[in-house]
Lab assay of single mutants.
Amino acid sequence: SHFELRVGTITLHFDNISEELAEELEKLAKNGVHADEIRRWWEEWLK
């Protein structure tokens, strides 16, 4: 499923992401983690 995450002024787009993972990314964003860090985390997870 597709997921969009708003982090400050940036909107990150994720394809084929589980609800659980989407929730984890939302938690990171709410805790003030920068969009670049979240994207890096996601790319690492995909490997």
Rank of each mutant, 00 (worst) to 15 (best):
T11S: 04
L46W: 10
I10E: 13
H13V: 14
E23Q: 15
N16F: 08
N16W: 07
N16M: 06
D15W: 15
W41A: 10
D15P: 08
L12E: 00
D36Q: 12
L28H: 08
A29G: 03
K47N: 11
L46S: 12
V7I: 09
S1V: 12
S18C: 04
G32E: 05
L25H: 00
A29K: 06
L28N: 02
V33M: 15
L21V: 13
N16T: 04
R40Y: 06
K27S: 10
A29M: 05
F3H: 02
L28T: 02
E4I: 07
A29N: 04
E20Y: 09
H13F: 11
H13I: 14
E37M: 12
W45N: 06
K30M: 12
L25W: 02
N31Y: 11
E37S: 08
E19G: 10
V7Y: 03
F14M: 02
K30T: 08
F3A: 00
N31E: 10
H13C: 07
N31F: 11
W45L: 06
F14S: 01
R40P: 02
E43H: 15
E37Y: 13
H34R: 10
R40G: 07
A22V: 12
S1P: 05
L5R: 00
I17S: 01
N31G: 10
E20R: 07
I38N: 01
E19V: 13
N16C: 05
E26A: 14
N31A: 12
E24P: 01
K47H: 13
A22P: 01
N31Q: 13
A29D: 02
V33T: 10
E23V: 11
E19D: 11
H13D: 02
E20I: 09
E43Y: 15
T9A: 14
L12G: 00
N16S: 06
S18P: 10
F3W: 13
E24G: 05
G32W: 07
E24L: 10
G8P: 00
H34M: 09
G32L: 07
E44Y: 15
K47G: 09
S1C: 09
L5S: 00
E37D: 12
H2I: 07
N31D: 09
E23T: 12
S18H: 05
S1Y: 08
L25V: 04
I17H: 01
V7L: 08
I38V: 06
L21P: 01
D15F: 15
E20N: 07
H2L: 02
V33I: 11
V7H: 01
I10N: 03
S1L: 14
S1F: 13
L21K: 05
I17Q: 01
H34Q: 13
A22T: 05
A35Q: 06
N16K: 04
S1M: 15
E4P: 02
A29W: 06
R39S: 08
L21E: 08
I38G: 01
K47A: 11
L46P: 04
W41D: 01
S1T: 10
H2C: 11
V7E: 01
I38A: 03
G8R: 01
K30D: 07
S18V: 04
L25M: 07
L46T: 11
G32Q: 04
K27D: 08
F14Y: 02
I38H: 01
E4T: 02
W42T: 04
E20Q: 12
I38S: 02
E26N: 11
I38Y: 03
R39A: 07
V33E: 07
E44R: 15
W41H: 11
T11W: 07
K27M: 11
H34K: 12
K27N: 11
V33N: 08
L5I: 11
L25T: 00
H2E: 05
L28A: 06
E19L: 13
N31K: 12
V33W: 15
A22N: 02
K30W: 08
E24F: 14
T9I: 09
R6V: 14
I38W: 10
D15Q: 09
W42D: 00
G32P: 04
E26K: 14
I38L: 07
G8I: 04
